[in-house]
Design a protein around this nucleic acid. Structure first.
Lengths: 181, 181
DNA sequence: ATCTAAAGTGAGTCAGCACTCGACTTCCTG
DNA sequence: CAGGAAGTCGAGTGCTGACTCACTTTAGAT
């Protein structure tokens, strides 16, 4: 077991292409999308996919991790009294277009290989929640678990229902009203 | 094409068994559950499944229709000022246990073979909504589409998040508060 | 009791898909 | 500019799961 040497240049390039391709493929076809298709779109042979990700599930997990990291960054950058509201809005908007986001949240409660990353998202959302509560834009009654639950629900709903912008706003408005003091 | 003659007794029995078996199988395994497994649990050969439902998708659609009919009945029986709230609660509780319910709602927006049945559910919910609004338990601002959207979202969330009773109640409490005047 | 069309059976077909592996190519190091 | 390790290639393998069909069984009409 040699210490992890840096990847060769072509390998790095392919790894990145693969992740991008996988994201769009799974976004379009769901987890049912085939590995072969991912390879094709990345301009690479199947064997290469499996060198980088020994299992289809590993590939899925890798995208989830990346997506999760992006969300955490976004949550970290947002803040202030209505940071939580803006984060939720953005999340739902993304979910409506990108199946992966919703799928990610759906799996996150189940998949045992993402616990720390999910924990980080949880922490980020907790931060937004307490900021909002201090600013008085969210009721002190509200706790983190139900916020996470709503977050998962809404992104799932947006995904499956094919919401347009208006419906999204009206639905979020109801939830936001429920969160306010 | 002879007019539809009544099914033979054994055929009727098997059809019913098949639907029951399919419901539990798909509830446990999701749509990925195999036709063979459905046949096994119904105590019937695969061929029989395909005699009744030429396509796996036909089988799925058949359960959806049945489930939908049950929901519509339930919605019809409920009523009064908090009928809508009780319906939502019951729906979410069912979704948490039975994958099929959530999957049904998820598909209902997409699947083109269930439009009338879904329309009926929509009507039933519309009835509950207007009753609640007349009684003053739900704000007049709220419209049907967002209620349907919340309904789909919450059942999806309950399914994927594996909510316990407490979390379910707390989450619903937020939504209900958002619906009130 | 007899007959027959409807229903049931289950081994078999076929397609798709995750994954393998030996031959070939490309990067990097000295 | 070797040499060889790391990476890529893609035809091939094996399995799973939807669907078929020639044959057997059975319900129900006469």
């Amino acid at each position: 077991m040699p210490a992890d040497r840096p990847l060769r240049a072509d390998a790095q390039r392919n790894r990145a292409r693969l992740l991008d391709a996988a994201e769009t493929v799974f976004a379009e076809l769901g987890p049912g999308g085939s590995t072969e298709e991912v390879a094709r779109r990345a301009g690479v042979a199947v064997g290469t996919v499996f060198r980088h990700f020994p299992t289809k599930d590993d590939l899925l997990t890798a995208i989830m991790k990346r997506l999760l990291a992006q969300l955490i960054t976004e949550a970290g950058e947002l803040g202030g009294p209505d940071g939580l509201f803006r984060f939720l809005t953005s999340l739902v908007a993304q979910a409506a277009g990108k199946r992966s986001v919703a799928e990610l949240l759906a799996r996150s409660g189940i998949d045992l290989r993402l616990p720390d990353a999910v924990g980080n998202l949880r922490d980020a959302v907790a931060g937004l929640l307490s900021q909002a509560q201090e600013a008085g834009t969210v009721s002190g009654e509200v706790r983190l678990p139900e916020v996470m639950a709503l977050l998962v629900s809404l992104s799932q709903g947006a995904l499956h229902g094919g919401w347009d912008e208006q419906l999204r706003d009206r639905t979020l408005a109801v939830v936001f009203k429920g969160l306010k003091p």
